[in-house]
Design a protein around this nucleic acid. Structure first.
Length: 420
RNA sequence: GGGGAGGUGGCUGAGUGGCCGAAAGCACCCGCCUGCUAAGCGGGUAGGGGGUGUAAAGCUCCCUCGGAGGUUCGAAUCCUCUCCUCCCCGCCA
């Protein structure tokens, strides 16, 4: 969330950011409630101060005549504080609904059509035949099964089998190895259910409740991304400034309801209710966050480069970047079978937006007052579409799939996927 | 799942109704001392919010001892609920 103080001081800036993001922002209501809250709080605290003073006097003098008056003041103070609290509560709820500001470098725009290609890498592969889609290849080779998944669970789930399942496992291992050994991230194995406070911390609540699966009768949610438990790992903590940036990499499944995506990407291994993801998370300072963000994006790109996949980096425009993000890049891998780019990573910097919600702070120096941290995260990478891009890029005319060089050690040395 | 013990500042830990936002120790910071280091001596160091300051500082008030309620003029301390941790028993991959 944004600091109340910022909204007081510069409401116009907040309004403008919200407008360009296409998000509603209850700035006027907030300003009004803020004024009311402060007036009521002042009133309540005045009564409370007097009550505290007289109560101390009573402790000394034991003057019984004070007692009845104190009893009354106690009630008055309680009511006044309750009134202030209820306004503050309302105010806090509204604050959670205000979208983040955005960086100067973010392109202004309304939809995905306005996103800007920041850079491209690799050449789109040429085939002497018409390339097949990953789902045709996968079903023909018996390594992907959507039909049985629909029977066992429902739509937007998949079984991977044989070399397909192994490819998924190999990719996870490969990505984790690169990020831990070469990029200096600490591997994390995280809970896959989190409580509501954590969901609020990363801004998945209250706004995006319908995107996540909720456990019945419990205050637990299936993680829509492992970013949620990993970022909340430091919730309500004050970190030592010299330990920053904290760098984590976590592998976990993500669960999403995909509400609002009806009819979109219904074919293939693209938009699943459950998908694996290797996620990068950083907690850092205001001074270094933009630089650390660019480095994180580069760390994710390394995976695509090593896999030999052609991709481009999109700088997301204001209207397409989302509620909580301060700046965001999407990495999209070229998938010749479906003949389009598939999003395999989304990398965002949040400034202190999440940290304020999750109360993650750090002490810049010994004895200095704590400041809110900056949080960053990005996929490095999401599995299904990476698998799609590999299958489609490395397919052969006979319908078998070559194993990318870097994955061979992770695939037991096999050269071809689907060979029997 | 049953029984028991606990949750206090960066950490350890004392505190059973007002003198407590909190002893003591550790850690850390500033100063003194010392040829250097260690030791020693003196001082300082929780978080959040409101008001007042152009800002910072300062001053001042309010809140916070896992969380939410309650009793009381007054709660870290008493009561209820709840979450978490530890120990014993049972069950289980």
């Amino acid at each position: 969330m944004l600091p109340l103080e910022l909204i007081r001081r510069d409401p116009e800036r907040v309004r403008r950011a919200a407008e360009l993001k296409g998000e509603p922002a209850p700035v006027d209501e907030i300003l009004k409630l803020d004024e009311g809250w402060r007036a009521q709080l002042h009133k309540a605290e005045t009564i409370k101060a007097e009550q505290n003073r007289l109560s101390k006097e009573f402790a000394k003098t034991r003057d019984e005549s004070l007692k009845e008056k104190l009893r009354q003041m106690s009630d008055e103070a309680k009511i006044a504080l309750e009134m202030a609290d209820s306004v503050k509560h309302e105010l806090d709820q509204l604050l959670l609904q205000v979208p983040n500001l955005f960086d100067e470098s973010v392109p202004i725009g309304e939809s995905e059509a306005d996103n800007v290609v920041a850079r491209e890498w690799g050449n789109k592969p040429e085939f002497g035949f018409t390339p097949q889609t990953h789902y045709d290849l996968g079903e023909a080779l018996g390594i992907m099964d959507f039909e049985r998944a629909a029977r066992v669970t429902g739509s937007r789930f998949a079984f991977l089998l044989g070399d397909g399942a192994r490819l998924e496992r190999a990719l996870v291992q490969f990505m984790l190895d690169v990020h831990t050994h070469e990029h200096g991230y600490t591997e994390v194995w995280a809970p896959m259910l989190v409580n509501s406070a954590s969901m609020v911390g990363t801004a998945n609540l209250p706004k995006f409740a319908d995107m996540a699966f909720k456990v019945e009768d419990k205050d637990l949610w299936l993680i829509p991304t492992v970013e949620v438990p990993v970022t909340n790992f430091h919730r309500d903590e004050i970190l030592e400034g010299d330990r920053l940036p904290m760098k984590y990499v976590a592998y976990a499944p993500s669960w999403r309801t995909e509400a609002g995506a009806a009819g979109k990407d219904t074919r293939g291994f693209i938009r699943m209710h459950q998908f694996s993801k290797v996620e990068l998370v950083k907690v850092t300072t205001a001074e270094t966050s933009m630089e650390e963000f660019e480095k994180l994006v580069a760390d994710a790109e390394v995976i695509l480069q090593r896999l030999g996949l052609s991709y481009h980096v999109l700088s997301m425009c204001t209207g397409d970047m989302g509620f909580a993000q301060y700046k965001k890049y999407d990495l999209e891998a070229w998938s010749p079978g479906v003949d389009r780019y598939l999003e395999v990573s989304s990398c965002s910097v949040f400034n202190d937006f999440q940290a304020m919600r999750a109360n993650i702070r750090y002490r810049p120096a010994k004895g200095a007052p704590p400041k809110f941290a900056h949080t960053i995260n990005g996929s490095g990478l999401a599995l299904p579409r990476t698998i799609d891009a590999i299958m489609e890029t490395y397919q052969r005319s006979d319908g078998l799939i070559s194993v990318p060089e870097v994955l061979k050690p992770y695939m037991g040395g096999i050269e071809l996927i689907g060979a029997r």
